[in-house]
């Protein structure tokens, strides 16, 4: 039994209030306006002194930066950050029971090359990025980029370890189906989500079932492969 913060009723369901329908789990507000994604975010005002771009990912930097905004490279040590620990539950995070499925996040050279020929020449491919498995928990896992200022941490956070700037903040979400498998829904992303190498993006807002080994491409270089965990 959960008490609904919107109408105060006791709800037998814990996803949405069974009286007024208000969302009960804390989900981030939908990102209506995704940042124009062709290039990494411009530096904030006041304009700091520009410096050489990041040697790893090519993101713009200033002399004030100790770490690269794009890939997190420590300019002093030249080290890339370790894969960030999964954010805490809530805010589209990995709350809930393990589902027996894992999303493997990696950088896809072929996809990147295809995009660059589309005119994304200012982007760099992140060399040497290791595949990162993200176990899928709960009923919904948001795919996007985090916003510290909004306290928004998607379950599959593509701002780390190397930010894919062409991913919308709330880009897509993976939804658990009644039969235990997962489906994907593109949440009105700017640059689209592509299934299994298709040239046509998924329809915005349409739920598409995912099967073992299905590949999603999004942003400028990201590939997410859905795999079933070994029993």
């Amino acid at each position: 039994m959960t008490t609904c913060p919107a109408c105060g009723a006791d709800s037998a369901t814990d996803d949405y209030c069974d009286q007024c329908g208000a969302a009960l789990s804390v989900t981030p507000p939908p990102e209506a306006v995704a940042a124009p994604a062709a290039a990494p975010a411009p530096p904030a005002a006041p304009p700091p002194t520009p410096a050489e771009p990041c040697p790893n990912c090519g993101a713009a930097r200033t002399t004030d930066d100790a770490f690269c905004e794009g890939c997190g490279l420590d300019f002093a040590t030249g080290q890339l950050p370790a894969a960030a620990p999964a954010p805490a539950a809530g805010a589209g995070g990995l709350a809930g029971a393990p589902s027996g499925w894992t999303a493997v996040v990696e950088a896809d050279r072929a996809f990147f090359d295809g995009n660059v020929s589309d005119g994304g020449a200012s982007l760099r491919f992140p060399e040497g990025l290791a595949p990162r498995p993200v176990p899928l928990h709960g009923d919904e896992v948001v795919v996007g980029r985090r916003s510290e200022s909004k306290g928004y941490f998607p379950g599959i956070d593509l701002s780390t370890p190397v930010a894919d700037a062409a991913v919308s903040q709330r880009h897509a979400s993976l939804r658990r189906q009644a039969d235990g498998s997962w489906a994907v829904i593109d949440e009105m992303s700017t640059n689209g989500t592509y299934l299994n190498g298709s040239n046509e993006p998924l329809d915005h807002g349409a739920l598409t079932a995912l099967h073992e080994g299905d590949r999603l491409n999004l942003g400028s270089f990201t590939r997410i492969t859905i795999v079933k965990d070994a029993p």
């Binding site: 996803d15 949405y16 329908g21 208000a22 009644a178 039969d179």
Partner: peptide
């Protein structure tokens, strides 16, 4: 900015809900 559930559609076989779909409003 509000998100609400507009409908919960469950498929019933005998007394059991065997599947459900959520219709949302944002």
């Amino acid at each position: 900015g509000d998100e609400k559930l507009a409908a919960r559609v469950s498929l019933m076989v005998g007394p059991d809900a065997v599947s459900q779909g959520l219709v949302r409003a944002v």
